[in-house]
């Protein structure tokens, strides 16, 4: 099971990095979203994997999974939505303003400061 989760994190990261390195805004946004998944799952996994022991206190149960990474990841998920939205509006503004959705600045002409 650990192998499955770790390989999923690795693949999401690789796909995320590859898409972030594309030249247009939309794939970059998708790439950052994939990286977000990878980071969130990784943070969550730092509490180690446990099946069937949610951190909801029950009488007579004394084994629970680590709740702290969950709390941290929960806010991270919500914040990442906010950040994605900001990036998207910036990308949209750039595209609508100049009809160009390239991520990089055009290379400067030789000789210009």
């Amino acid at each position: 099971m650990e192998f499955l989760v770790a390989s999923a994190i690795g693949l999401l990261t690789a796909a995320g990095i590859y898409l972030v390195l594309r030249l247009r805004t939309f794939p970059v946004i998708i790439g950052t979203s994939l990286l977000t998944y990878a980071v969130n799952v990784f943070l969550f996994a730092s509490g180690r994997l446990t099946v069937g022991a949610p951190p909801i206190l029950r009488a007579g149960v004394d084994s629970y999974t680590d709740p702290l990474p969950q709390a941290l990841v929960l806010t991270a998920i919500v914040i990442s939505f906010g950040m994605t939205a900001v990036v998207v509006v910036i990308a949209l503004g750039a595209y609508l303003g100049s009809d160009d959705d390239h991520v990089n600045d055009a290379p400067e002409e030789e000789g210009t400061p």
């Binding site: 770790a6 994190i9 690795g10 999401l12 990261t13 690789a14 990784f42 996994a45 180690r48």
Partner: peptide
């Protein structure tokens, strides 16, 4: 990807 995989697997 490989780095994160190895690190995560190690950690887990």
């Amino acid at each position: 990807g490989a780095a994160t995989f190895v690190f995560s697997y190690h950690l887990l």
